[in-house]
Design a protein around this nucleic acid. Structure first.
Lengths: 153, 153
DNA sequence: ATAAACCTTGGAGTTTAATCCAAGGTCAAG
DNA sequence: CTTGACCTTGGATTAAACTCCAAGGTTTAT
């Protein structure tokens, strides 16, 4: 069992952030001490880890709440419904993955071809390195237009 | 040449957002009309595409400014210095990639093993699916701690 | 030549995600 | 039984990234 300050220290965040997540329904301590102190267990800690990871890869707290709701509603919702939510998120994740892979490739080639020596800048720019680009998350309307992919409210 | 509204429409953003990016040094139109209207060319459009992609995978506008500065300073900076910046960003991108791959794998397994039928929830939770987790972006202090790039301006 | 649809600027307002503060309660150590 | 580090609540403040507004200039089309 961790008290709020301990759990916060463990993940290098502020206790206030944990209270904030609680207020917004992302993570509540599994219990309280007699005097009302928040007490977090190992599952709570795992849940927090998930939240922080999801945040780190660009999901908003709302997105994360969606993902976590899959757990919360486990027993209530039809499995097909859950699958829908998961698959939607999966699409988002895979789009991000494709972008990131592209980024990584470009950064690597930039690092290798252009910056080997002390002064041999041939095409020292990410924009140039990315010029051979193909795929987008971004809906460039003229090229390809599919219906407004689910913006959240 | 695009006027601000045209370019904004092309990427499904607001003209205001383009003015905002300009004010913050991310993207300035390459020219102005006689009457002062912003005029964006194809390079500007590419630059905007880059900004939006980088944002979509979780980079802050400050991060993006860093990346773009590689181009701007092309002729000024020593190549080794540029390489340092690129390699730092590359590390960030690869950390994000690792996280996302983990995410994608978990979401896939969740989608497959748990939600095939209308009602057969076996372990219908992302947290459970992620339980076999290994890697983190998150600095869990006991394990590994690397400084996070705290930029502000 | 006048409306409609664009653009300009500066500044104010909004949303998201924290982060800080004040007034007070709790707990272990001396 | 007090000191200091921790915790509680609610509310205010901050920072980033937009988003909107007002007052006016420009363009195009009738």
């Amino acid at each position: 069992m961790y008290r709020i300050g301990e759990l916060a220290a463990l993940y290098d965040i502020k206790a206030d952030t944990l209270r904030f997540y609680e207020k917004h329904g992302l993570l509540s301590p599994s219990s309280r001490s007699d005097s009302g102190y928040r007490l977090y267990n190992q599952d709570d800690s795992e849940r927090l880890k998930f939240i922080l990871r999801a945040k780190a890869v660009g999901f908003s707290l709302n997105d994360i709440a969606d993902l976590l709701s899959i757990e919360v509603d486990k027993s209530n919702r039809a499995c097909a419904e859950v699958k829908g939510l998961v698959d939607t998120k999966l699409e988002q994740v895979e789009a991000k993955l494709a972008e990131l892979q592209h980024f990584a490739t470009s950064l690597k080639s930039l690092s290798n071809t252009c910056c080997g020596g002390p002064d041999s800048a041939e095409h020292c720019s990410i924009l140039e390195a990315l010029e051979s680009s193909d795929q987008h998350i971004i809906a460039k309307k003229e090229q390809h237009h599919f219906s407004h992919s689910g913006h959240k409210d």
